[in-house]
């Protein structure tokens, strides 16, 4: 019974972490069609921003939830102005440019922080469930993922800005004819996507040993989650993260962590073979 609860929490945690990893990319790639190969590095910088802020004496939750998204969002803004805005609609070129950016950021962070592992410890203590000890921080990650999904959903659905953004992504010429500047909207959307990436990196910072090349560990999972999710932002993230998180955890528990990772990839291949447009290309059509 206790074990069942522990496994359940671990599964929810796995799903939540995939949602967090994929969220920023879902905005930048899913909405804007920019293949951001520097997504992992945005997360890595979110982690470094958090650690730096905590070491400067900022409260850890402020550092994670405010400082890191702002810092990475601003970095994203600069990147968008200098590089990405010249490349909208040029899929292959953005790939090359963002890959270059990812190398640049790894180099930059290595120069600033050195090529060594850094980290902070988790702010929430572990607690006992029957005979088992469980990481209290898992619940924070799960809550953060839920809050993030609800937040994105509310913004896109109920605010004017969300409506304008969605409109501009579908028909930028029409949005322009109605008096909205697509240029500005793209800029703001890219800022939001980067900020979400930064937030994700920040939330994982206390769980990992951070090195400048940490981003590489996230990038594949982020793309798999977003592509398998399909066109809808929230429903896509939720459904693909759900499938992959649960599959990988079942195999991790039943066999081994290596098989868990393999199972995630196999599930992705099968899923894309059956549903090339992603899960929300077939189910939940037209949802957000």
């Amino acid at each position: 019974m206790d074990l069942a609860f522990v496994i359940l929490v671990e599964m929810l945690y796995a799903v939540a972490s995939l949602i967090l990893i994929g969220a920023g990319l879902a905005v930048v790639f899913g909405m804007m069609k920019v293949i951001n190969l520097a997504h992992g590095e945005f997360m890595m910088m979110g982690g470094y921003a958090t650690i730096t802020a905590v070491n400067l004496g900022v409260n850890i939750f402020v550092a994670m939830l405010v400082v890191a998204p702002l810092v990475v969002g601003l970095i994203g803004l600069v990147v968008e102005r200098l590089v990405i805005r010249h490349l909208y609609g040029r899929l292959v070129d953005t790939m090359l440019a963002t890959w270059g950016l990812s190398l640049f950021f790894i180099g930059l962070v290595t120069m600033i922080f050195g090529n060594t592992t850094t980290g902070i410890s988790t702010p929430i203590p572990g607690f006992a469930v029957g005979d088992y000890q469980i990481n209290g921080y898992n619940f924070f990650v799960i809550l953060a993922a839920i809050a993030l999904l609800i937040g994105v959903l509310l913004v896109l659905r109920t605010t004017r800005a969300g409506l304008v953004a969605r409109g501009a992504m579908q028909r930028s010429d029409m949005a322009a004819a109605l008096g909205y500047s697509p240029d500005r909207i793209y800029m703001a959307t890219f800022f939001c996507g980067s900020a979400l990436s930064g937030l994700a990196g920040a939330v994982f910072a206390p769980l990992v040993g951070l090195v400048p090349t940490s981003g590489g560990a996230y990038i594949a999972k982020a793309f798999i989650t977003v592509i398998a999710g399909g066109p809808s932002l929230v429903a896509g993230l939720l459904s693909s993260a759900g499938v992959f998180g649960i599959v990988s955890q079942i195999f991790t528990f039943a066999i081994s962590p290596v098989i868990g990772e393999v199972a995630l990839l196999v599930a992705a291949v099968i899923l894309l073979r059956i549903m090339p447009q992603g899960i929300t290309g077939r189910f939940f059509k037209g949802r957000l």
Partner: peptide
């Protein structure tokens, strides 16, 4: 564990 695995929750259980 492959060298890029950073999540040990299931293992700890």
């Amino acid at each position: 564990f492959p060298l890029d695995v950073a999540d040990f929750g299931a293992t700890i259980a």
